[in-house]
Amino acid sequence: MKIKPINKKLKLYGFNNLTKTLSFNLYDICYTLSPEHQKEYIEYIDEEYNADRLVSILTDVAKIIGANVLNVANQDYDPQGASVTMLVAENEVLHEQPVNVVDNESPGPSSEAVVGHLDKSHITVHTYPESHPYKGISTFRADIDVSTCGQISPLKALNYLITSFEPDIAIIDYRVRGFTRDVNGKKYYIDHKINSIQNYMTGKTRELYQMIDVNIYQENIFHTKMILKEFDLDHYLFGTAKKELPPAERKKIKQRIKKEMLEIYYGKNMPTVRG
């Protein structure tokens, strides 16, 4: 089912009251052979994604979606993890001003090239480093919410966030809530075209991942899950290299990592993956 976009010349009665929320969980999976390496991985993640770095990323997000930053609160936690909350606001929308809608499904910039402007509502990120008690697996999760009210949409920040975190797995939700009125009083429940969250990522990004969509078009709810297609054991090992391990050990570790990734991707526990 395709959504027919609203005419870009639509004139609103007062403020655009639509709320657009982009929420996702980003996962990084790692395997450590010793408790010492596990501790080093958690320390590495805590440093790589500390509160100051996250503030920098969210500031870029605000620029991309066109929002003015009003306030920033950030905190690093002991023993691990960090949170950032950023309040953003859109410039005043004048009576009968044409809507500046997202008129096509196209990716925003990557993390290598950030351009744009700022404006609206709130952006938050919380990080959750954790580890398996005895099987060597460590997981880093970042939960991000970009919520805007009015003309601007968080979708243009999606590609930047994916390329900034380079996750092994991403679970993404986008929803448009509420309604806004035109000058004749007619209600609109969405003000831009969208068929799939995937269309807001570059082809280069999409090629890296296996993706599944579950969309409820009539409710303006869109859901996409992503998992890396290619599996290179060296990508997941921390503190050691694949060539240092005997074949039997490599196979066992590969099975454990794949099982962990598939359980996160499908949201349920499952048998060990063979091969």
Score class of each variant (00 low, 15 high):
73 A>Q: 14
45 I>A: 12
37 H>Y: 11
59 T>W: 07
58 L>N: 03
77 Y>R: 10
57 I>M: 10
74 N>S: 15
42 I>C: 04
43 E>D: 12
66 G>D: 03
65 I>Q: 01
70 L>S: 13
42 I>W: 08
42 I>T: 07
72 V>S: 03
53 R>E: 09
74 N>V: 06
52 D>C: 10
36 E>C: 09
48 E>D: 08
64 I>T: 04
52 D>L: 08
64 I>R: 05
52 D>F: 08
44 Y>N: 11
47 E>K: 15
58 L>G: 04
43 E>Q: 11
53 R>I: 06
76 D>N: 15
60 D>V: 02
36 E>Q: 15
51 A>Y: 09
59 T>A: 04
53 R>S: 10
59 T>N: 09
69 V>Q: 02
40 E>K: 09
75 Q>P: 07
44 Y>A: 07
36 E>W: 11
37 H>P: 09
51 A>V: 05
72 V>I: 14
77 Y>K: 05
69 V>P: 00
47 E>T: 14
43 E>Y: 01
66 G>V: 05
69 V>I: 15
41 Y>S: 07
60 D>P: 03
68 N>H: 05
42 I>F: 06
56 S>L: 11
70 L>W: 06
62 A>M: 03
45 I>T: 11
73 A>K: 15
70 L>V: 15
57 I>K: 02
39 K>N: 11
56 S>Y: 14
65 I>H: 02
39 K>P: 00
71 N>W: 11
76 D>W: 09
42 I>A: 03
59 T>S: 11
39 K>D: 00
48 E>S: 11
63 K>T: 15
58 L>H: 05
39 K>Q: 08
60 D>F: 08
64 I>A: 03
51 A>P: 00
57 I>G: 03
62 A>S: 13
42 I>P: 07
69 V>F: 07
55 V>A: 00
64 I>F: 05
53 R>L: 06
72 V>N: 07
42 I>R: 02
71 N>P: 02
74 N>R: 15
44 Y>G: 01
75 Q>C: 13
42 I>H: 04
53 R>W: 05
42 I>L: 05
54 L>M: 08
74 N>F: 13
36 E>R: 13
38 Q>M: 14
52 D>Q: 13
49 Y>C: 00
43 E>M: 07
40 E>N: 12
72 V>K: 07
64 I>N: 02
60 D>W: 05
76 D>H: 12
77 Y>F: 13
72 V>Y: 12
50 N>M: 05
57 I>H: 04
56 S>M: 12
69 V>D: 06
38 Q>E: 13
64 I>Y: 02
57 I>W: 00
72 V>D: 12
45 I>V: 14
47 E>V: 07
74 N>L: 10
52 D>V: 11
50 N>T: 01
67 A>C: 09
36 E>M: 11
46 D>M: 03
41 Y>A: 10
58 L>D: 02
60 D>E: 13
73 A>E: 14
63 K>H: 14
53 R>K: 14
38 Q>D: 10
67 A>W: 01
67 A>Y: 00
76 D>L: 07
62 A>L: 06
52 D>I: 12
43 E>K: 09
60 D>A: 01
69 V>Y: 01
68 N>W: 01
76 D>C: 10
39 K>V: 01
57 I>T: 08
66 G>Y: 02
50 N>R: 02
53 R>C: 04
51 A>R: 08
51 A>I: 05
41 Y>H: 10
38 Q>W: 02
40 E>G: 04
